[in-house]
Every structure is written in C-alpha cells, then in structure tokens.
Nucleic acid binder design. Structure first.
Lengths: 337, 337
DNA sequence: CTGTTAGCGCCTTCAA
DNA sequence: TTGAAGGCGCTAACAG
C-alpha cells in the first residue's frame, strides 16, 4: 500500500521530533529551529522521504493542482500557452492539470465543476465567453482564477490577453498602408476569437469602402495548411480581383502561400499575405509573409505567475494585463499604388 | 474546507444506505442491488456529489494519475503524442500528469521518483535511454509502464514505437532510388533518436559509397525553420555538389525549402528535400517535399490504451508494438539520372 | 519553538 | 448484498 514506505512519522521518529515539526519544517521552515530543521533535512534525505500529495490534500483541504481549461489540444496556439504555463510551474511544488473543453460550453462547465470539486490551488481558463453558470462557479471559486487569451469587460478575477479585434484592425490597416486595396479574409473553425478578428477586419474594410462578402471565406473545418490552400484557391477563382489576404492564423497563411507559389503568383507584389500569431517559421518564409505576432507563451507564463504569486499572498500590480500584439511586416518593398 | 460540501456520507444518508454501499455502487456497481444503485445515482445527481480524488487516493493506496515523462514540451512531436494520450484518457476516470525531463537524465530520474512516490496508476516514458537507476525504478514500479517513441532491446514492460534508424535508412534509400547521388543530412539538437537516424543515413550512404562528412550538418541548437534555412545555406555554400537533403524533422525541411526558394534553386529537380514526421503542412508544400510519416498521435493513443486496458486487467496481445513509418514521396517526377 | 488532538473523505477488511 | 470498524498520511487548531 505504501509506496516508498517512508512516512512523515518515520522521519519524525528518526529525527527525534514530532511529525508536526517535520511537517512544519517542510512548509514553514522559518518557524522551526535551525537545529531541528537540519536534523530533519538530513533524515529526509537519508530515508528518501517524499510527502504524499493525496494525504496532504486531504488534510489541508486543498490540492497542489492548478487547473487549466483550454478549448483544444490540437491548436498550436494553446500548446504555446501551455508551454509558458509549464515553464513556470515546473519547478514549483504545484502541478498542472489540463482540461480540454473541445470548444463546447457544456464541457467547459463540467470541467469547471470537476476542477472545483478538487479544491484546486488556482484555475486558468480560456476566453471570456463562459456560460452564465460557469462564470458564476468561477466567481465563487475558492481559488484565484485567471482568464487568458482575450481581454474583456468584466474580468472574473485576473486576466491576461489582448484584443483580437484590434489586432485584426491594425493588420488590415497595415495592408491598406502597404497599398493593397482589395483584401480578403480567410478563416477556419470560427471560434469567438476568430469572430472578433473578422469583425476587426470588417471594421477597416468597410471604412475603406472595400467591403465585399465574396472576399470573406470562413468554414467550420479545423484549421490546417491544406485548408489554407483550398480556401486560397477558392478565393482566387471566385474573387480574382483580390490583392491581399488576412489569414486567421499562420497555418492558413502558409497554405495560401503554397497555393500562390503553385499558381506562379508573385507574392507579395501581386498578392500580399498576412497571417496571425507569427509562428516561428513565418520569419523565414520565402516569399515573405507578414504576420501578427502574439505573445502566447508569455501569456501562459504571466497567467501561471499570477496564480503562484497570489498563492504566496502577493497581489499582481494590475489584475488585467494587455499583452498587445505586433504586426511583423515582411513587406520588404512598399506596394506600388 | 469542504468544496461542494457534499460527501459520500451525505449521499448515503439521503439514499438510506451506508457510505460503503455508495462507494461500491461507484466502483463496482455490479455488486450493489439495482434498487440501491438507482436510488444512489439519483441522489448523487441531485446533490451534485463528486468523489474527492485525494481521499480516494489516500484510502485506496493509489492515485488515478497516469504519469507521462517527455523530454520536451516545445517539440511538436511530443505535442502530437500528448494529444493521442489526452484523447484516450480524457473520458476516463484517470488523469494525465506531465513531467518534462528537458533531455536531462537526472531530471528524468527525479521525475520518475516523484511520480512513483505518488503511486501512479500507470507510467508512460519516452525512449529507451534511461539511466540504469531509472530503469531499475521503473522495473520495480508498482504500476505498468509503457516506453514510447522507440523500439529497443529490453522493454521495461510495454513499448510502442518504431525504428528511427530503419526509417532513416529507408528514406535515404528512397533518395537514391529517385536518382539523387549526393545526399546530405541536416539535424538540430542531437538527441538519441536523432543519433539513430543519423546512423541510418550513414548506413545507406556508406553502402552507396557516397559518404562525405561535409554533407552532414548537426548542431546543438533547438530545431526551427530558421535553423533549417541557416543549415541549408551553410550546406549549399560549403558542399555545392549536394543534390538532396534528409532533414531530421519537418521544421528544418521547411526552412531548407525556403532557402532554396530564396536562392532560386529548382526543388525537387536540382535539390530534393526529405523531412521527417510528415507534419500536416508537408502534404501541401509547394514545391513539394517528401517526408517520413510517423504515427505520433497513434503512439500516444496506443500507449494510453495499453495502460487503461491493463488497469482493467486486460493484457495487450503484444507488449511491443511497432508502429512503423511511411515515406511519403512527393517526388512527382522521377529524377533524371 | 514544539507537541497534542482530532479529523480530512474514502476505501480495505472483515463480518453479517 | 450490505454494513461496521479502522486507518491511509498528513495538517489545522490549539495548547504549552
């Protein structure tokens, strides 16, 4: 039944103190005399004692688990965020527990319940589009909560993200600034963030009097480079006047690039391509692709740090962090007007 | 202290049975009368009871945690494997706990100890190059263990993978079959699997009498498309006779492609490119890139399934599964000899 | 600074 | 098929 066999009682006996002192020396070393502490440390080392997290959780009334709810484990964007989270938590006594909502609100709600019933040390959730009930659960959660990915009106607790609508606006404006006049928008699975980006695209395109529904392609299929090629082909066939395209993400952009190469289209002069996220490869793509750089790993890092800090009793200077974005223009030569 | 506040005792009282019966109806429903079972189910639903995993772990002497140790959370390959694992475990009562060894053997050993001290339900570890001590720990582990990624001589317990050396051999031979005569090898961070692939490349190249160290480039830097471009540039500058290149992964291959495009080199006629893993984008790259398809997600799926099955008392038909690989040739036209 | 007391919520064992 | 007793390993809360 016992794993290492070594319990806190064994350590206590060997060190000539009570189990409580051992427990303390582990969690609040400052409140234990240096002598005891050293002796205990030596015994722990010698016996190879490792505290049982289950027993600890049961006794303390909370676990060392930080729950993370994301809508997809397939999407690169979330892998990047997770990397940031793991990076911070890896060398702490806490553990990450991942939940995948699969873009389904009910699943998200169920995951939230499950996590909460485990008395997590903290919770990181994606987006701001929780159901009313999920929101209520999170507001009353007995732990701190960070919403990531987006910025929104009423943060549940803490928040790290950026404005997708604004990012799309700036990217679209950038296309106009470079001299393009008839931009298109390509998107795959339309989640809330995609909708906001699409809205940002429309904002600018309408203002410029360049709105044309035939230049907006969105499907419910999951994103992929293959889909990017398909959508680009469709676009070029049906809206040949298109002179640039804002892709909802870099996979689509890469696919769009390949389709242009395949057709012998001059990128970026005949068609300008702008992706979203600025994955590593975008910087070296040739012909060049512009992309909107987002700070995904940092988002995870900051969210996890916020949880760890509050766990130590340190409040963040600012509960809402806007990470912003950057249009990485790789339009070496300005487009001729 | 209590989260939902609802404990097994509450359910028992409300259902007019003992806590023990509730506990049983949850774990061994067959051993509880249909009447009790229904009544209990109703109460659980009504009260929103969720068993406390910590209490359960403490009492049962083992957790519902399946530990997974991988060397990198950055590497796409492992994200794909994790996706397979999560897919299987997501809808089971078990949970995934991820450990990142960062390619450091000591870290792997420490992680193994930590996991084992938590009495995991199962363990999935990467590769076959554990330290002697880690191996010993795993062999004596009180749970089932699956090694993934590779195949090897002496499986600790179960194993799912493929031969990297053989895969590289076949890929290299494929280049010769297509008419290329002076293939190069590009690699980033050289982990054990990369070494084996390199060996496979050398096997074939030496046999063909085409071995030339100046056409083998490997660095310790982490892999990226940018690095692929850099290495390809270096290769083309220093070994201009190169007519094809086997890249240790698809990021490098993509970078290599971009470098060729940048230099106006005719791919695949002047230079043939072969990647490794066959990421989704490779299928639609233009100019075309061949790649060695590996079954990463399936690897995770099978490994997780093996654990879950053995947990149910079902032994796998075969404890070692060779997933193989496939060279996805995208050499539309045969190379002229 | 240290120890005592009393569980945390559930499951194992054993008996009915 | 069900229940009673006891304890898993640890930590709050409260002394001392």
């Amino acid at each position: 039944m016992k794993s290492t066999g070594v319990t806190i009682a064994d350590v206590a006996r060997e060190a000539g103190v009570s189990p409580m002192t051992v427990s303390r020396s582990l969690r609040e070393p400052a409140r234990v005399s240096a002598k005891s502490r050293e002796r205990i440390a030596e015994v722990i080392e010698r016996l190879g004692y490792v505290p049982d997290p289950a027993a600890r959780a049961l006794a303390a009334g909370r676990t060392n688990v930080i729950g993370v709810i994301i809508p997809s484990v397939t999407n690169n964007v979330f892998s990047d965020v997770m990397r940031g989270i793991y990076g911070v938590i890896e060398n702490s006594p806490w553990q990450v527990q991942l939940g995948n909502s699969r873009y389904v609100a009910e699943t998200e709600e169920a995951l939230t319940r499950t996590f909460l019933s485990q008395r997590p040390a903290g919770l990181i959730v994606s987006g701001v589009d929780q159901t009313r009930k999920t929101r209520e659960l999170l507001i009353n959660a007995p732990c701190r909560v960070v919403q990531i990915m987006e910025l929104g009106e009423a943060p549940i607790d803490m928040m790290v993200g950026f404005s997708h609508r604004e990012a799309a606006r700036v990217a679209t404006q950038h296309l106009f600034d470079k001299g393009y006049r008839r931009p298109a928008f390509l998107a795959a699975r339309v989640d809330p963030r995609t909708k906001r980006r699409m809205a940002g695209f429309e904002d600018v395109v309408r203002t410029a009097g360049a709105f044309d529904p035939s230049r907006i392609l969105a499907t419910s299929a999951p994103s992929s480079a293959a889909l990017g090629r398909t959508l680009m082909a469709e676009l070029l066939d049906n809206a040949p006047e298109t002179d640039s395209v804002l892709c909802n993400n870099d996979d689509l952009a890469l696919g769009a690039l390949f389709e242009c190469l395949h057709r012998g289209i001059d990128v970026p002069n005949a068609i300008g391509i702008c992706g979203f996220n600025d994955l590593e490869m975008m910087a070296v793509a040739y012909p060049t692709i512009t992309s909107v750089k987002t700070y995904r790993e940092e988002m995870g890092r900051i969210a996890a740090t916020m949880i760890l800090e509050t766990l130590k009793g340190i409040e963040p200077e600012e509960p809402v962090v806007d990470l912003g974005f950057d249009v990485m223009s790789r339009q070496s030569t300005a487009k001729l007007l």
